[in-house]
């Protein structure tokens, strides 16, 4: 019994280690042009995030570009936009330290921003700020694990709430 406990205690730190090398994530990047205007309109291609966009301080949203692809461990997905700037999203692995499955990502809005974050599976990050024409660019970055088994005790269900 004591040996089993010691073994468990020794193995606990391994829970925070990243997932195996064969893990991959589905990374999506959408470039959205947002504008403040009297008339409110959202591009039908953005219907899935209509409620999120409606909470931002803009009234018009139009999809400019999109990219969705699989990324293996430490692989990066890049999308170039205006003025030689581009956004890169790197999948850095799976993190289980919070007791639920989280994806470690590195967002790089070159050359002004670099951010390392962990998001829950299926999480979405809206990065807004770069000025573009009369409005602002918003980058919709989503990440979902591919082929992942659900965690026990319904740990993955909060994304559906």
């Amino acid at each position: 019994m004591t040996r089993a406990l010691c073994l468990i205690i020794c193995l606990l730190p391994l829970g925070s280690l990243q997932a195996a090398d064969d893990q991959s994530a589905r990374i999506g990047i959408r470039v959205i042009y947002a504008l403040k205007d009297e008339a409110k309109s959202i591009d039908p291609a953005l219907d899935d995030i209509r409620s999120e966009l409606s909470e931002l301080p803009f009234s018009k949203f139009r999809l400019l570009d999109r990219l969705e692809t699989s990324a293996g461990l430490n692989a990066s997905v890049e999308l170039q936009f205006a003025n030689r700037q581009y956004i890169a999203v790197a999948f850095k692995g799976i993190d289980l330290r919070t007791g639920k499955r989280m994806l470690s990502l590195e967002l790089h809005l070159k050359p002004v921003l670099k951010i390392e974050l962990r998001v829950t599976d299926g999480g979405r990050t809206l990065l807004m700020g770069p000025p573009y024409l009369d409005g602002t660019l918003i980058f919709d970055v989503s990440a979902r694990l591919e082929g992942a088994e659900p965690l026990p005790a319904g740990r993955d269900k909060e994304k559906d709430q």
């Binding site: 995030i49 409620s51 999120e52 909470e55 931002l56 003025n83 030689r84 700037q85 809005l109 050359p111 002004v112 921003l113 951010i115 974050l117 998001v119 829950t120 299926g122 999480g123 979405r124 990050t125 809206l126 990065l127 807004m128 700020g129 770069p130 000025p131 602002t136 909060e158 994304k159 709430q161």
Partner: peptide
Amino acid sequence: VSRNNTTVIWLYDMNRLPDGKSE
């Protein structure tokens, strides 16, 4: 924002960055 697992990172002084920082 909302309950859909969405996080917003707003860089709201990015349009005032010096030219050297934007490019």
